[in-house]
Design a protein around this nucleic acid. Structure first.
Lengths: 142, 142
DNA sequence: CACGAATAGTTGAGGTTGTCAACTATTGCC
DNA sequence: GGCAATAGTTGACAACCTCAACTATTCGTG
């Protein structure tokens, strides 16, 4: 029942190739973080936030899959850069809403541009392959 | 010539989907690390090593794209678990070759199995889609 | 051969990440 | 009113990571 160890299935091969592609994107991520004077975790935190819709800190903790106390530190860092502000929630005085500042939104936008930049390997594919790749992945991820 | 900013190209869409898929693999990675009592960086270090071919520490630092001094600590951790040993190089007494122990090879193999496990989303694709995905990615990555 | 430059690895300082446990303030329920 | 649950912070602690400084060794060039 288990797949033969000797020759990989198409799915295994595809997954291995995707893993490789992702590993090769690591330098890009580090470069972007450095450009904005942020650390990678701070970058991911800002990436998760929506400039148009403030969220409570616990929502960010959930999105980042980490402890709330960790978010405290990350937000401190982003706030020190003037990218994010803590604002009191109206309905519940326990929660702090995270508001992306104007500067934060600008940084986030430029950061997203770089993140979304298509890797050369994908960009080099034929238009038909690119479209097929998108279609297959859409089917996979709903 | 530049792609229209308004609607994403197929390549951009595909890349976004792959990014999402990878993010969803985070819990799996943390689980595997915990299972073997290792931290994620230690896991990546062991993953980079080849049980059949010892390499100098310098090579590992290069593969992990980090400072040599960082590798010292990571290898200390792996060595404390009995997964890796430092062995003197014959031709150059400055370098230490990293040798994966028998136990280390076993742990690495089980770890690799989990890493290579195909995500449900990909496994759920039709055989034709899986094959097409592999073929396209092979064209992309040579 | 000698001597200075280059290289492999370690150490220590300093800042960040991340978890857990304890704590405060607030809310919601009965 | 009283009490459990929740949001967030703090402090302790371990790990990560980079940089600069250091030791030991090798290499290159005169």
């Amino acid at each position: 029942m288990a797949p033969d160890v000797r020759d990989r299935t198409a799915a295994e091969e595809a997954w291995a190739l995707m893993s490789r592609l992702f590993w090769e994107m690591r330098p890009r991520m580090l470069r972007v973080a450095g450009e904005f004077g942020l650390t990678p975790p701070q970058l991911f935190a800002l990436r998760q936030l929506d400039p148009d819709q403030p969220v409570p800190m616990r929502a960010l903790a959930q999105a980042l899959q980490c402890d709330s106390s960790n978010v405290t530190g990350l937000v401190d860092g982003l706030a020190a850069h003037g990218l994010v502000e803590r604002r009191e929630a109206e309905h519940d005085r326990r929660v702090r809403m995270l508001v992306v500042t104007e500067k934060g939104a600008a940084v986030r936008a430029r950061m997203q541009e770089t993140f979304q930049e298509v890797p050369d390997q994908i960009a080099g594919l034929s238009p038909a392959d690119q479209a097929a790749l998108r279609d297959i992945l859409q089917r996979a991820l709903d």
